[in-house]
């Protein structure tokens, strides 16, 4: 084993990924750094087109980096491909199987390509596919198809597992089953790097999360850390008479006044006392502490602002549309 306990299972430095050349060129990944500690689950969270899949494809060794360096278990996924592939499992965002093979034949074929595979029957049981073993792939539902896909990813008992949107398109029950499976993988010592745009998935699974936007990592940490750094939010219908407001970021969202404050309780008390003293009714009043959802929405809103008002740091205001196309 070349892995040391103190060495990250996945390490990314200054990764850039460019598509196209000349005037059509654009950068889907714009210089990201990332370390995934062994035995942890790390989520890349972002809207479609944020650069999650483009990043993962380099880690998987399917695409070369335009710049920067990627190490998986201390190895280069392209030049050390055979060694890396023996110890990793990959689930693509979308992938296909030959429709005329049965589930068992598909797993048997996959097992034949793996150095030390799980027995096929064990794989079938692991993903609850035993009853469907003799059904041809084209007869499976989307969720069953995804489960076969996951069974292949886990066939070689990988040390590092890369899952690109593992539960997209699954029903709620299957999603929970996949979550349990991913937690089991961590329990057995595997490292998991996954992408998702589901907040509940991140909250349920991730030890650490990196929020991506437009090819960059804009927040990173545990869910608790990310949420703690984020202001709480108070909103109410803007009253007819101006009201002195507590300190904080103030914003207008349609007819609502939105306040962002670091400490919710004193700010809210101050607001309510002022309103009572002046006899102002705060309609549609709502107050909430930060959540992963509010952080995520704010990050998305920052993106919209970037798109509306080109900023020197983002020379291509149209890149969001282009990124969608690139996926």
């Amino acid at each position: 084993m070349t892995t040391r306990a103190d060495q990250p299972a996945v390490s990314i430095r200054g990764l850039r990924r460019r598509y196209g050349t000349g005037a059509d060129a654009f950068e889907a990944v714009r210089g990201i750094d990332l370390d995934v500690a062994p035995g942890t689950i790390h989520a890349l969270l972002g809207v479609n087109g944020a650069g999650k899949t483009s990043t993962l494809e380099v880690v998987e060794g399917l695409a070369p980096a335009s710049a920067g360096e990627v190490r998986v278990l201390g190895l280069d996924p392209v030049t050390d491909r055979p060694a890396v592939r023996r110890r990793t499992g990959v689930l693509l965002q979308r992938s296909g199987f030959v429709g005329d093979l049965t589930v068992r034949e598909t797993l048997r074929m996959w097992a034949a390509t793996v150095t030390s595979p799980r027995p096929v029957e064990e794989s079938l049981a692991l993903l609850d596919l035993t009853d469907r073993a003799d059904v041809r792939m084209r007869g499976l539902s989307g969720g069953e198809h995804r489960r076969v896909d996951i069974a292949c990813a886990l066939m070689g008992r990988p040390e590092v597992v890369m899952l690109d949107e593992p539960t997209t398109g699954l029903d709620p029950e299957s999603r929970r089953a996949v979550w349990a499976l991913v937690r089991d993988l961590r329990q057995q010592g595997a490292t998991v790097l996954l992408t998702t745009h589901y907040l509940d998935e991140v909250e349920a699974l991730a030890d650490r999360v990196s929020i991506m936007r437009a090819g960059e990592i804009v927040r990173e940490g545990t869910v608790a850390q990310i949420v703690a750094d984020h202001p709480s939010q108070i909103s109410f219908r803007t009253p007819d008479h101006a009201l002195p407001l507590p300190d904080g970021d103030r914003d207008q969202d349609g007819e609502l006044t939105v306040l962002r404050v670091a400490d919710l309780q004193p700010a809210l008390t101050e607001l309510l006392v002022t309103a009572r003293d002046r006899g102002v009714v705060l309609e549609r009043l709502s107050a909430r502490t930060a959540s992963l959802e509010s952080v995520f929405l704010d990050v998305a809103a920052e993106r919209d602002r970037v798109a509306d008002h080109p900023h020197p740091a983002h020379p291509h205001p149209e890149h969001d549309a282009v990124l969608e196309d690139a996926r």
């Binding site: 998987e60 399917l62 023996r86 693509l92 992938s95 296909g96 199987f97 390509t113 793996v114 150095t115």
Partner: peptide, 17 residues
């Protein structure tokens, strides 16, 4: 056909050269 159906892409994530 297999390229279109992403079968080849899937297989190329594994150990097969």
């Amino acid at each position: 056909t297999r390229r279109d159906e992403l079968v080849l892409k899937r297989l190329r994530t594994g150990e097969v050269r």
